[in-house]
């Protein structure tokens, strides 16, 4: 019976439920969501594929063009690849990858760079900030 005040208070206050499909909360600024590759900037160096703990990225350089493919549903959104990308072509959206009814492999094809690009200084990581609530 000790719970009585709490449940009564709940009854007479607004439910905390977020009415999800109708109301979608803005994602936190530093949320690690869907992995995207700006294929135009990608140099197909393969760092991401080597660093990925889930081994879900493959990089192929065949026939003069680079193929960057991601086994999307095996990605664990850890952000290691983003951290290690030398040209910042990888980034993570703030929203999660949408659900699907079949396995998805993201395959991006791009031109190989003329020569291996110089390793650029990595800018400071995504700036954490207070979430919008």
């Amino acid at each position: 019976m000790k719970m009585l005040p709490t449940v009564l208070a709940n009854l007479f206050s607004k439910p905390v439920t977020r009415n999800y499909p109708t109301f979608v909360r803005d994602p936190f600024p530093n949320a690690r969501g869907e992995l995207v590759n700006d294929i135009d900037r990608c140099i197909f160096c393969g760092t991401c594929s080597r660093k990925c703990p889930s081994q879900c990225i493959t990089v192929n350089k065949e026939g003069g063009q680079g193929i960057w493919s991601l086994e999307a549903y095996a990605c664990v959104s850890c952000g290691i690849c983003v951290m290690s990308c030398p040209v910042n072509s990888l980034s993570q959206k703030k929203t999660y990858r949408p659900v699907g009814t079949g396995r998805v492999t993201v395959t991006l094809t791009g031109k190989l760079p003329e020569k291996p690009a110089k390793k650029t200084e990595k800018p400071a990581g995504a700036k954490p900030a207070q979430p919008a609530q």
Partner: peptide
Amino acid sequence: VYVPGCPAKPE
């Protein structure tokens, strides 16, 4: 249905 994410969000 496949739900990606590690872990998948409740949404």
